[in-house]
Amino acid sequence: MLHIINKSPLQTRTLETCLRTAQPGHALLLIEDGIYGATTGSATEAQVRQACATLKVYALQPDMDARGLTGRLIEGITLVDYGGFVDLTLTHSTSHSWL
């Protein structure tokens, strides 16, 4: 299944709760303010790096670009464009847009 997060992990606990819920093999897509979780130097970096070992983690490049943080992408996270976003929702039978 695909988990989608659009909130900064420093502002809400959504990412934290998602990470303890997501199971090995699930995918996680960070969009909008969720992309702050995909950046190096953030307080949540270690948690996200650990998640990359069991989950496939993606970040939406236009949102990274918009926030000027594309250069700080955590290694192991895959950038996708809007087309890639659509593909992810098609290749996973269940999507959960965490609120």
Binding site: M1, T17, R20, T21, A22, H26, T94, S95, W98, L99
Partner: peptide
């Protein structure tokens, strides 16, 4: 547990978040 909830989640057709 959160892990058990994650397994249940993956079995759904539709997930709505509130």
């Amino acid at each position: 547990s959160s892990a058990q909830l994650g397994e249940l989640m993956a079995q759904q057709d539709v997930i709505l978040s509130f």
